[in-house]
Design a protein around this nucleic acid. Structure first.
Length: 459
RNA sequence: GUCCCCAUCGUCUAGCCCGGUUAGGACACCACCCUUUCACGGUGAGAACCGGGGUUCGAAUCCCCGUGGGGACGCCA
C-alpha cells in the first residue's frame, strides 16, 4: 500500500473555525497514525475574500494546536507551490487538457465543465429558472466512514469564472491529483459536492481518492451547524481565554470519534495510535463547552509546576488591561502564588479574579460574603483575637500557622471555621480560595495583619 | 422543491457489522462522604434505544416505510 497523503485545505478568510480545526486534526491524526504525509494547502482562489494577513490566522492556529504540516507553505515540499494563487500554470495546463477532450465550453464569459449524456431543458421551481439537466450515470463515492454513496451530478458547472479565476471544485481536484492525495478527509457538508469532484477525476483519467466525510459540529443551542458567529466557534477565542491546546485537541478528537472504549482523557500519542477512519461516527455532534471546560481543568491540574507557572504568566501577560499588576511581582513570589492556586482553578481565565488580592491592596470585598460572615457569631472578637495572634505566631510553614489557629480556637471555644471565615474575608475579600494557612504564609505577617485591622476598623 | 447523510440518557458516546446486556462510561444536574472556605476526589440517584410495520423463539442490533435532525443545490470554499 502506497504511503497515505492527506491534506488540509483552508481558505484564508480571517477566521479559523472549530470545525476546520477538527478537520485538520483528523487529517493530521490519520497521517500520523499511518506514517503518512500531512499537506497544508491554501485555497485562496477567491481574490475578493482572501487576504495576505489572514494566512497568519491559519498558521498560528495550526501551530498553537500542535498540528504541524509536512508539506505546505513555510516548509515547502516537492509538490509545491502550496498556495493556489501561485498555481495558475498548473490550472492552465489541466484546463487545456479538459478543453482538448471536448469537456469544456464557454458561457457568459465563464468556462463550464461539460457532463456526458442526453440533455433536456427543465424549469427548476426552487431556483426559479430554466436549467439544462444532463442524463448522467451516478458517481460512486467510496467513503471510509459512510460506505458506498451514490449521487448523480446532472448539471454542468462553472470551473473558471468570467474574471479568469478558477473555481474551488476544479482547483481542488487538480491539486489533489498533482499533489498525489490518497485520502480526502473533510466535513460532511462537502459530500454533495463530491459527485462533481468524482466527475472531474474521471474526466482527467485520474484515480479517485478514498473519501472520508466526517460529521459536522452543531451549535450547542438552536438549530444548524456551528457558524463563525456562534459562541465558542473560533480557535483564537480559546487561545485568548487561556485554554490548553492539548485539552482542546483531546476534546475535539472525541467529537465524532472514540477509541472504542471508555477512555476519554488520553495523551496525544495514544490518540494517534488508536485513531482510524472506521472509528469515526456518522452522526453530527453538538458542541458542549462544559465538557471542554472539564477537560481543560483536568489538563491544568496535571501540569508540572514549571509549566503551570509559565502558562499562567503567559495568560496574564496577554490580558488587555492591568498586566502591570502581575508583571511587577518578583518571580519567586509569583510562582508561589500560582502554585498555591493551581489545584483550585478550573481555568486560567479565573486567574485575575482568583489571585488579584495577592498583588494589590486594592481588592474588592464581596458584599454578600461580608454580610454572611459578619452576621454569624462574634466576628469582632474573632478579628481582635486574630490580630493579636498574628503578631507573634510562627508564619514559616502551613503546619505552624495551622497549629497556632487551632490552639486559638481551642482556647476561645469558637470553631476553627469561624476564624477561617473572618480571616479569609479580611485577607481576600471573598469566601473561596486556597487554604487559609497557605493564604497567611504566602501573604506574610505584615499584610495579613494590615488587612485584618482594616476589616476590624469598618465594624 | 430536488438530491445526499444521519437517528441510544439533556449533551458526547459504548453496544449495532457477527440479534439473547440489570443498555456501559463521561459531561451536566441532584444527594451524601471527605473537608478549615471553595474546588478536586469518592459514593450514590435520576436520566436513553424516534414511531410503525416486518424477519425471528428472541430486535437497540437485520429489512422497509414514516417522522425528525443535518447538509448540498453560487462565476463562495
Amino acid at each position: 500500500m502506497a504511503q497515505v497523503r492527506v491534506r488540509f485545505a483552508p481558505s484564508p478568510t480571517g477566521f479559523f473555525h472549530i470545525g476546520s480545526a477538527r478537520t485538520a486534526l483528523f487529517n493530521w491524526l490519520y497521517a500520523r497514525h499511518t506514517g503518512g504525509v500531512f499537506v497544508l494547502r491554501i485555497e485562496d482562489t477567491d481574490k475578493e475574500r482572501n487576504s495576505e494577513q489572514f494566512l497568519n490566522v491559519i498558521y498560528d492556529s495550526l501551530s498553537w494546536l500542535g498540528l504541524n504540516w509536512d508539506e505546505g507553505p513555510r516548509v515547502g515540499g516537492q509538490f509545491g507551490p502550496y498556495r493556489q494563487s501561485e498555481r495558475a500554470d498548473v490550472y492552465r495546463e489541466y484546463l487545456a487538457r479538459l478543453a482538448a477532450a471536448g469537456r469544456t465550453y464557454e458561457k457568459d464569459g465563464a468556462t463550464y465543465f461539460k457532463l456526458l449524456g442526453e440533455r433536456a431543458e427543465v424549469y427548476d421551481e426552487h431556483r426559479k429558472k430554466t436549467v439544462t439537466k444532463v442524463r448522467n450515470a451516478p458517481a460512486v463515492i467510496d467513503d471510509r466512514i459512510r460506505g458506498r454513496v451514490e449521487r448523480t451530478e446532472d448539471e454542468d458547472f462553472v470551473i473558471v469564472r468570467s474574471d479568469g479565476n478558477p473555481v474551488f471544485h476544479f482547483v481542488n481536484v487538480v491539486d489533489d491529483i498533482t499533489m498525489a492525495i490518497t485520502h480526502v478527509i473533510r466535513g460532511e457538508d462537502h459530500l454533495s459536492n463530491t459527485s462533481k469532484h468524482v466527475e472531474l477525476f474521471k474526466a482527467f483519467g485520474a484515480p479517485v481518492p478514498a473519501y472520508a466525510h466526517i460529521p459536522l459540529i452543531l451549535k450547542q443551542n438552536g438549530p444548524g451547524k456551528m457558524s463563525k458567529r456562534d459562541q465558542g466557534a473560533l480557535i483564537e477565542e480559546y487561545q485568548r481565554r487561556g485554554f490548553l491546546p492539548e485539552a482542546l485537541v483531546n476534546f475535539l478528537s472525541l467529537l465524532g470519534w472514540n477509541p472504542g472504549d471508555d477512555r476519554e482523557k488520553m495523551p496525544i500519542a495514544e490518540i494517534i495510535r488508536l485513531f482510524d477512519l472506521p472509528g469515526v461516527n456518522q452522526s453530527n455532534a453538538r458542541f458542549d463547552e462544559k465538557k471542554l471546560a472539564h477537560m481543560n481543568m483536568a489538563y491544568l491540574l496535571e501540569l508540572s509546576p514549571d509549566r503551570f507557572v509559565e502558562k499562567a504568566r503567559g495568560y496574564l501577560a496577554q490580558l488587555p488591561a492591568g498586566a502591570s499588576r502581575w508583571q511587577s511581582a518578583d518571580d519567586a513570589y509569583f510562582r508561589e502564588v500560582m502554585l498555591l492556586c493551581q489545584p483550585k482553578l478550573k481555568g486560567l481565565e479565573e486567574l485575575p479574579a482568583y489571585t488579584g488580592y495577592f498583588f494589590s491592596e486594592d481588592f474588592p470585598l464581596d458584599a454578600k460574603v461580608r454580610e454572611k460572615v459578619m452576621g454569624k457569631g462574634d466576628p469582632r472578637a474573632r478579628l481582635a483575637e486574630l490580630i493579636d495572634l498574628t503578631g507573634t505566631a510562627d508564619f514559616s510553614t502551613d503546619a505552624a500557622i495551622e497549629e497556632a489557629l487551632k490552639a486559638l480556637a481551642a482556647r476561645s471555644g469558637a470553631g476553627f471555621g469561624d476564624y477561617q471565615a473572618v480571616a479569609r474575608l479580611a485577607v481576600s475579600g471573598t469566601n473561596v480560595g486556597p487554604s487559609i494557612t497557605g493564604l497567611f504564609r504566602v501573604l506574610g505577617r505584615e499584610r495579613v495583619r494590615k488587612r485584618l485591622s482594616a476589616l476590624a476598623a469598618t465594624l
